[in-house]
Design a protein around this nucleic acid. Structure first.
Lengths: 165, 165
DNA sequence: GCAAATTAATGATTTATTCAAG
DNA sequence: CTTGAATAAATCATTAATTTGC
């Protein structure tokens, strides 16, 4: 049943996107639009208003919600995988306990569906072992553990010596 | 393209964070850790090594890279926003702010930092008549409002069978 | 087949974080 | 240290699906 979204005088409780509008929005999202700015929202609204009553805030909210829920979904999926891998870790640990190391590089990275264009791909690359010219990191790490900061795992760790940040 | 990072050779070309490690690192970053010192790095490494092979330099580099990329991302975003006149799309959000609490069911307000002066919490009361100002906020307040329709500002009355008002 | 009741989706709001500027 | 700006997370509220009893 078509809900007749634009019963004008009545209480327009909330926007109900028509299938055309929804299709276009989803296509835009799929194409990479995540947080359109004002001009884009204006254009999208103008374009979509051809298919039914719509306002800019609807477009704005739609992208907000869609992005948030997409992320949420992905996050739940990752969490599931995390639990699985924790389980496997336990198994692996148990196996390793009974069996000596077997040179079995059991790698994770089961993520098949690459996140489209979002951030969070912390795959930095650097030489595994800086041989002679040990970079600052190793030198840094070779410091004799001056004082252990108490609030490592606590919240709000005040970075004591922040030169300029 | 990938040269089979973990093929036969046991020498892993580079550290590959497990989801658990990644999650913990992100959580630490979110909690405020940005440039951990040697002791912190040691602790973090010890903690994370439970979930997989990791070294101190990995932790060090991770925080370095993460911080850098975060800043970079944010700069790009800000640049985009400044480049434009940033009209409405936060206008909708601002309009959403405008609504006074209709019925706050339960609020748990965790105050982390003691607020010395509480005389100004959320003053987003943009009057319907914007004053001329140099800030971008007034810019979006000023504009002709293709969306953010008046009905949003005048906030509809809740429909009949509300629980309570 | 059909509505009332219940559940799932999703639009709309509020709250908490974050960064940078003053 | 405070404040402005913007957003993402969390939540509220309403519509659509669906289940259920008749």
């Amino acid at each position: 049943m078509s809900p007749a979204p634009n019963s004008s005088s009545s209480s327009t409780s909330r926007w109900c996107p028509t299938p055309e509008q929804l299709m276009i929005l989803e296509e835009m999202y799929r194409a990479g639009t995540r947080t359109p700015n004002a001009s884009q929202i204006q254009q999208i609204t103008a374009h979509l208003s051809f298919y039914g009553k719509i306002e800019g805030k609807n477009v704005f909210y739609w992208f907000q919600n869609h992005k948030a829920r997409d992320r949420q979904k992905l996050r739940r999926k990752l969490y599931k995988q995390l639990q699985q891998q924790q389980h496997q870790h336990q198994l692996a640990a148990a196996a390793a306990y009974h069996n000596h190391n077997h040179n079995n590089t059991h790698h994770h990275q089961l993520i098949t569906t690459t996140p489209p264009n979002d951030h969070n791909q912390y795959h930095h690359h650097f030489s595994s072992v800086p041989t002679t010219s040990s970079s600052a990191s190793s030198a840094f790490l070779h410091q004799p553990l001056s004082f252990i900061s108490p609030q490592l795992l606590s919240k709000k760790a005040p970075i004591s010596f922040s030169s300029k940040i």
